[in-house]
């Protein structure tokens, strides 16, 4: 239990620093920056107590906002995907009562984990870019930014999860 708390706190701090110091300055093709910190949301253990998870994901988004001067954009988006994570997972896995405590993203089949990651990433990126542009006129840049950045983010998150997590 203690190692679980330690693991998640280290992952929290590590992902925030990784995001603000490295991934915010990648600028692939001049403007693409992946938002890999949402991997924390994907990997957080699923438990019945959701309030701690919601507050922590809000804080995760807010710490990114502190570094990138974006008001509360990342906090709002991260909180939103934290809230819909469980329903999406249930929908993807098509099980109503799976083992909450023992859930591991590596344990489910790759295609299902992939769909889960893709849905949450696209929703998160769409919220971030809509709030950043905040106008209906810029519908095209919002959509193109969402899709291109999502592809980049998903590739890096999946590579990261495969490299840094133990298969059960």
């Amino acid at each position: 239990m203690n190692s679980l708390i330690l693991n998640n706190s280290l992952r929290f701090i590590g992902l925030v620093l990784l995001q603000v110091l490295i991934f915010n300055h990648i600028n692939l093709f001049g403007y693409l920056n992946p938002m890999v910190y949402i991997a924390w949301i994907l990997l957080f253990p699923i438990r019945k107590n959701k309030s701690l998870f919601l507050i922590l994901s809000f804080l995760l988004g807010l710490s990114i906002d502190f570094f990138s001067d974006s008001g509360g954009i990342n906090a709002a988006a991260t909180l939103a995907i934290a809230f819909i994570r469980l329903p999406i997972l249930k929908m993807v896995l098509r099980k109503t009562d799976f083992d909450f405590l023992l859930f591991n993203l590596r344990a489910v089949s790759f295609s299902k984990a992939f769909i889960f990651i893709v849905i949450l990433t696209i929703i998160h990126h769409f919220i971030v870019f809509s709030l950043e542009y905040f106008s209906l006129n810029s519908f095209y840049p919002i959509i193109s930014n969402t899709i291109l950045t999502s592809v980049f983010t998903i590739i890096i998150i999946i590579l990261g999860i495969i490299l840094f997590s133990k298969k059960k």
Partner: peptide
């Protein structure tokens, strides 16, 4: 929390 986040966004603008 979402309302709090939006308050920060509006304050930032």
């Amino acid at each position: 929390l979402e309302i709090l986040a939006f308050t920060f966004i509006i304050q930032h603008h």
